[in-house]
Structures are given as C-alpha cells and as structure tokens.
C-alpha cells in the first residue's frame, strides 16, 4: 500500500480578540463535519500541527486528496463562540520546512 501524501496549510487567523488554540481546532472540525459529514472528515486526516496565538498563525496538516475540502471548511468559518472571525489559508506546501520558508517567515 503506497504512503498517503499530506499537505501543510498555513492559516492566518483574523479575530477581534485572540483566539485560543482549542477554539480554533474545534471551529475547523465543526465546519468540516457540518459541510462534509463524518465520512468526509474521516478521509481528510486533518490535524492542527502548530498554533501561535500571538502571531495568529496556525499550521494544519491534511491528506493531499482532501486539500480542497479542508480549505473550504477553513474558509467558511465565520464565528467562534459567537464572535466574528475569518480564517485565511495563506499557503499550501508539501513539507513543513518549505511552508515555513515560503509563507510563515513573512509573518
């Protein structure tokens, strides 16, 4: 069985108040389940690798085939705990090292 390829997404968090990592993870999962159900969420293999609440940046890993649905789930989050937020995927890369070099270093 061939190895499943992954992709790393750099996410910029925009909110009026700093967001806790737990709240960010829950928002992503809630959106993924809402739009694509348990089946789609299970195929995505989504995982939050890093979260920096000071810089409002996060790194999310998912399977290659699920990049589009994970990106869609992230983009459709509009509220967390009743407060308006926006999540922007600022870059996608095959390795964490390249993601940090190309996208995260600018922030």
């Amino acid at each position: 069985m061939s190895r499943q390829r992954s992709r790393y997404l750099a996410v910029l968090i925009e909110s009026e108040e700093p967001l806790k990592g737990r709240a960010f993870i829950e928002a992503i999962w809630k959106s993924l389940l809402r739009l694509f159900g348990v089946y789609g969420a299970s195929k995505s293999k989504v995982q939050v690798i890093e979260y920096d609440d000071e810089k409002a940046l996060a790194v999310v890993r998912c399977s290659l085939s699920a990049v589009r649905i994970v990106r869609c789930s992230i983009a459709t989050v509009t509220k967390v705990n009743g407060r308006p937020v926006a999540f922007h995927v600022i870059g996608v890369s095959g390795t964490l090292k390249a993601l940090r070099r190309k996208f995260l270093s600018q922030h």
Partner: peptide, 16 residues
C-alpha cells in the same frame, strides 16, 4: 472586510 477571502479560498468553497 471579515467576509472577504482570498481567490483560492473561494475556489475551494465553489466545490460545494
């Protein structure tokens, strides 16, 4: 401005 998304994010949402 909170409703704005980058073009690639909109293309992902269009998959819906």
């Amino acid at each position: 401005d909170l409703v704005l998304r980058c073009p690639r994010d909109w293309t992902a949402v269009a998959s819906l």
